[in-house]
């Protein structure tokens, strides 16, 4: 099964990225985690994302473009990145999700990746 692990982080985590005192530990944890997934050969793709303050959201309504400064939903936790993995089952995906730095401070959503019928 292919899953997306979607990492949501609170504002305090995004702040750590550029905080000289906290950044090494923050990036170290993520680098170690991504490295472990690569070493295990389960990761098939993914990216980290810049903080939600840099997000722009667009909606088309009645032909009108509504462009909004900020993410699509205003919530305590915001999308910080995602990876795609290939593992045997949900429990294995949950195991990888639980090892992510986001699991303890934010949340990780695990979703099966939608495959085109030819790939399924």
């Amino acid at each position: 099964m292919q899953y997306a692990l979607i990492f949501a982080e609170p504002a305090t985590e995004f702040q750590k990225r550029n905080d000289p005192a906290a950044a090494p530990a923050y990036w170290g944890a993520w680098t170690g985690y991504i490295g472990a997934m690569r070493a295990a050969g389960v990761m098939t793709g993914g990216h980290g994302l810049e903080p939600p303050i840099l997000a722009t959201t667009l909606r088309l309504r009645d032909g009108q473009r509504h462009v909004q400064d900020g993410p699509y939903a205003d919530s305590k936790e915001q999308l910080g990145g995602f990876v795609a993995i290939e593992v045997p089952d949900l429990d294995t995906a949950l195991e990888w999700a639980s090892r992510s730095p986001a699991a303890a401070v934010g949340s990780v959503e695990i979703r099966p990746i939608l495959l085109a019928p030819a790939d399924a």
Partner: peptide, 14 residues
């Protein structure tokens, strides 16, 4: 079926 819940017994930790 669709979320891929496995039929393996969970590991000792779980």
């Amino acid at each position: 079926r669709d979320a891929g819940i496995g039929f393996e017994l969970p590991g000792a930790a779980e």
